[in-house]
Amino acid sequence: MTQRFTAIVYWEDDVYVAQCPEMGTASQGDTVEEAIANLKEATELYLEEFPLPKTSPRLLTTFQ
């Protein structure tokens, strides 16, 4: 089963920073694409060490 995760990307100082709030992983890159690719790799490495438990799909929403 393919997992879907959220990437939050923003410009900080002189690089793009990408964070995955579900896993707590983060990375950076010179472009948005590079930051996301680096985040994907960091998250994959994290999940090799700390696999996700079998759970039902999660819903992401916002509220005030």
Rank of each mutant, 00 (worst) to 15 (best):
T2D: 15
Q3W: 05
R4S: 14
R4T: 13
R4A: 14
T6V: 10
I8Y: 10
Y10I: 04
Y10V: 02
Y10N: 11
E12R: 06
E12K: 07
D13Y: 03
D14S: 13
Y16Q: 02
V17S: 00
A18T: 00
A18Q: 01
Q19I: 07
E22N: 03
E22T: 03
M23S: 05
M23N: 02
G24Y: 02
A26F: 03
A26L: 04
A26T: 02
S27G: 08
Q28M: 13
D30E: 11
D30W: 12
D30I: 01
T31I: 00
E33R: 14
E33L: 13
A35V: 04
A35Q: 08
A37N: 13
A37P: 06
N38R: 05
K40I: 07
K40P: 10
K40M: 09
A42K: 06
A42M: 12
A42Q: 08
T43P: 06
T43N: 05
T43Y: 04
E44L: 13
E44I: 05
L45V: 13
L45I: 10
L47M: 05
F50D: 03
P51W: 09
L52I: 03
T55N: 07
T55W: 08
T55F: 05
S56L: 11
S56F: 11
R58A: 15
R58V: 12
T61K: 15
T61I: 13
Q64A: 15
